[in-house]
């Protein structure tokens, strides 16, 4: 049995089931909600195209006298965004991949192997995930300040003030959530496939990699999107564990657009739109996999 065979069946709706009459109502409803959701965002984009003096004078809800993309160029150059984008990617991409890999295996072990103590393990991960980040900052700072690293890994010679620190914390902190979600998703998978694999003499790795993981694609894609968003948008870990400005992630770089006192909010809006682009792209790329793709219920060949 292969995944592609499974994927082939989109839940095409057989003709004539109930619900067709409500279709236009549903459309109107979804459209209205979508617009309501989108309106504030469009307003932000709109503001980023207008000079500060104008919105200060007329308010944000007013007709423009001039629209331009100047703020976008300024936001990109003034904040030194290029370098900070790189930092964010260096943290986020490995962060998401490592987290998903470790978490999916842990979840597999917890949900599918029936190891002794697996429930305790699940609880440990889940409960750790409940804590707000701020709680563990100080002890971690003290810890990181004591862990030496060779120069080629960290020019501060310590875990503190290095991207490694941020990466490690991101992975550790998000693991709990991913384990929790994946373990729950994996419980919905039909057990029979796994039992069959055991009968076939498959080892733990095979059962994880070739039997369970392919079935988890929607969950992995959904989680990957969320994780990318969170790790990328996170500013706290960078803020507290990095003291060199050039190592900060792009979310912190946005603050470069704020002065000690004065903030040009329209410039900030332009910067925020630029910063939000990668998360939107990742969502659009992964969307296909977790929405339209594989459906577990369609398992019957």
């Amino acid at each position: 049995m292969t995944v592609s065979a499974v994927r082939a069946r989109r839940p095409a709706r057989p003709g004539g089931p109930p619900g067709r009459r409500g279709r236009s109502g549903v459309h109107a409803f979804l459209l209205a909600v979508s617009l309501a959701f989108l309106a504030p965002l469009l307003l932000a984009v709109y503001a980023s195209l207008r000079p500060y003096e104008e919105t200060a004078r007329d308010g944000y809800f007013s007709l423009p006298s001039r629209l331009s993309l100047d703020y976008y160029r300024q936001a990109f150059t003034d904040s030194g965004m290029g370098r900070h984008f790189l930092n964010s990617l260096l943290i986020t991409v490995p962060g998401v991949l490592i987290t998903l890999f470790l978490a999916s295996f842990t979840a597999f072990a917890v949900a599918r192997l029936r190891l002794r103590g697996s429930l305790v393990l699940l609880m440990v991960f889940t409960a750790g995930n409940l804590l707000p980040q701020q709680v563990i900052v100080t002890p971690l700072y003290v810890l990181f300040n004591k862990v030496p690293l060779p120069y080629r890994m960290s020019d501060s010679l310590m875990l503190y003030d290095s991207l490694w620190a941020v990466l490690a914390v991101q992975v550790a902190f998000q693991l709990g959530f991913c384990v929790f979600v994946l373990a729950n998703f994996m419980r919905t998978l039909p057990r029979e496939i796994l039992e069959a694999a055991i009968v076939d003499g498959a080892g733990v790795w095979t059962r994880y990699r070739h039997v369970t993981l392919p079935l988890c694609r929607p969950a992995l894609a959904a989680l990957g999107t969320l994780q990318f968003t969170w790790m990328y948008n996170d500013f706290l870990w960078g803020l507290v564990f990095l003291s060199t400005g050039d190592k900060l992630p792009v979310t912190s770089a946005l603050n470069n657009l704020r002065g000690q006192f004065f903030t040009d909010y329209n410039l900030l809006a332009a910067g925020s739109v630029i910063v939000a682009l990668p998360t939107v792209v990742v969502f659009l790329l992964l969307q296909r996999h977790f929405i339209a793709g594989l459906t577990l219920g369609a398992n019957k060949g």
Partner: peptide
């Protein structure tokens, strides 16, 4: 239920989730 334009709806409804702190404050 398989409405048309479902990807559009999904995308717009998900947009607020991707926003960072700065955007939310500004909005």
């Amino acid at each position: 239920r398989g409405v048309r334009f479902s990807r559009f709806y999904q995308s717009t409804l998900y947009m607020p989730v991707v926003l960072s702190l700065a955007v939310v404050g500004f909005i």
